[in-house]
Every structure is written in structure tokens, then in C-alpha cells.
Design a protein around this nucleic acid. Structure first.
Lengths: 129, 129
DNA sequence: GCTTGACCTTCCCCTCGCTGGAAGCCCCAT
DNA sequence: ATGGGGCTTCCAGCGAGGGGAAGGTCAAGC
């Protein structure tokens, strides 16, 4: 398979696949013409990576997850810990965003939003509250 | 005021303040020795920027907000629209993160997390479900 | 055999919002 | 005069790719 086919089948852009090779996540063979030459196992890894990234795991997380995946003697506890740490970060992000949302929602509600210059949003940002 | 004082009083790192000058958000005067020379108005702007950034507005949003803030004849509707668009993006991010969280939470719950290799998290990532 | 167009390659720069560090002035206290 | 802190500029890098140029390759159509 050439990179275009793999891109189509994995749903990842060709650029991303090349990048993943660059950083050592995959190691496709090369044809005589220099083209990358992917086998099913590469496709499978890429799909794995795509799903892990979609769950918000960092590249370095993905690297560890892949290593664990390929290690037949892994302990599922290691995977679970990784996932739980990631979950914590996500929870923190959600909380941060919710705090922003709550403040913004209130400010937006307070603002008439008409053609007059008086604006509680700017007033708040300027510290005049 | 020198940059160190402004950094302390605004809560922003000196590096960030220099960066904001670089990209034209503030324009402090210079002393004869080449040091940046800040007045109260600069400090006020930096505090404004700090609060807007803390609410997640992008730098370009901040630039517009500052322009609106300094425009005495602004329409509060313009500010409100900006804030609402930003709010939408935040809501989207929250929803995305919540979806990740839900999936991850379920996977983590399904995983025994012991020393055995069998792991539903990896199984899911590998697409074997 | 030649051309065309699609595909592939590498390479470098760009994103966003800073942050770290190096090299070199400047200022104040001792 | 010396030391230490603060200030300056400039360059490089983070994460996770994206955009696009310059050039090689392949298969189809004429």
C-alpha cells in the first residue's frame, strides 16, 4: 500500500502519517522507488493511533500505549493508570472551561448588546467592578 | 515603572509583557537607557489583557476588545457578539472533552487494572470491539 | 514514444502563546 | 571596583501537525 491508500483507509492525513514516521511511531518499509510501503500491521497501528489521539491522549501517551499494546506480558494496571491520569487532566480542563463559560455567560447576559457604548463586559475586563 | 514592577503588579511574566509589546498590544515609552518605561495606563491595559486571556479570549480577540474598550463610541453589541462567539467555542470544547471523558471513564471502569495483560482499553483502541 | 496528470518524495516555514536561555548593558550598594 | 541583580536583544523550542515548493515516479491515453 502507498501512503494515499493508507491515508484513506485510516482516516489520517498523509502528512500526519509521515509525521508519525518521523517521530518513530511507525516504521513502514520502502519500495525500490523510495515510496513508503505499508502493510496491514502498519494500517492497524495507525488506526490505533487515530483512536488514541481522538480520545485526547498525547503523542507520548500514544507511544506508551502502543508499547504496552505490543507487549504481550503487559500489566493492564499500567494501561489503566495511564488512562486515569489522562482522565484527570481532562476533568481539570473541563472544570477550567466551565468556569470560563459561567463567567462569560453571566457577562453576556448583563450586556444589553445594543448600539450604546455602555458595556458590562468591558467594565469587568477593565477591573472596574 | 520598569518591567519588573509592572510584572509584579499585573501578575504577568516580564516575558509575556515584552511579547505583548512585540505584537503591538501595548506601546510603552523608553527611558534614555533603553529600558521600557511604563505608566499607569500601560499597567491598566496589561491587567485588562490578563483578565481577557484568563477568560480564554485569543490574542486577536484581546486586540479587538482593547480597541473597543478604547473606542468611546463603540456599540456594546459588538462586544457582546465577540463574547458570544467565544462562548460558543468554549461550549464546543467542553462538549468534546466531555465525550472523551465519558468514553474514557467507561473504559477505565471496564479495566481490571491488575497485573494480567488482558485490557479492555487496549482492546478498544485496537478496534477489536 | 511522448505527454499529461496524479501521486509520491524531501524540505522548510507557519501556526499559538508564550517560555528558556545566552550574551551583553546598566545601575546600585558595598 | 566589584558584585549581583535587572534590563536589553535575539534565537530556539514546545505540540501536533498544515501549507506549499521543487522535484522524482508511475500509469494511461495519444
Amino acid at each position: 500500500m502507498n501512503i494515499g491508500d493508507v491515508a484513506t483507509r485510516s482516516g489520517l492525513p498523509a502528512k500526519t502519517i509521515r509525521y508519525y514516521e518521523d517521530i518513530g511511531l511507525i516504521k513502514p518499509q520502502r519500495s525500490e522507488n523510495g515510496y513508503r510501503c505499508f502493510v496491514e500491521a502498519d494500517l492497524h497501528k495507525l488506526a490505533f493511533l487515530g483512536r488514541a489521539r481522538a480520545l485526547g491522549f498525547t503523542i507520548e501517551d500514544c507511544r506508551m500505549l502502543m508499547a504496552l499494546y505490543e507487549d504481550e506480558s503487559r500489566a493492564s494496571g499500567d494501561v489503566k493508570r495511564l488512562a486515569q491520569e489522562h482522565l484527570c487532566k481532562i476533568e481539570t480542563k473541563i472544570a477550567d472551561l466551565q468556569a470560563m463559560r459561567d463567567t462569560l455567560t453571566e457577562l453576556v447576559h448583563c450586556c444589553a448588546g445594543d448600539s450604546r457604548p455602555d458595556c458590562p463586559i468591558l467594565k469587568d475586563l477593565s477591573g472596574k467592578v
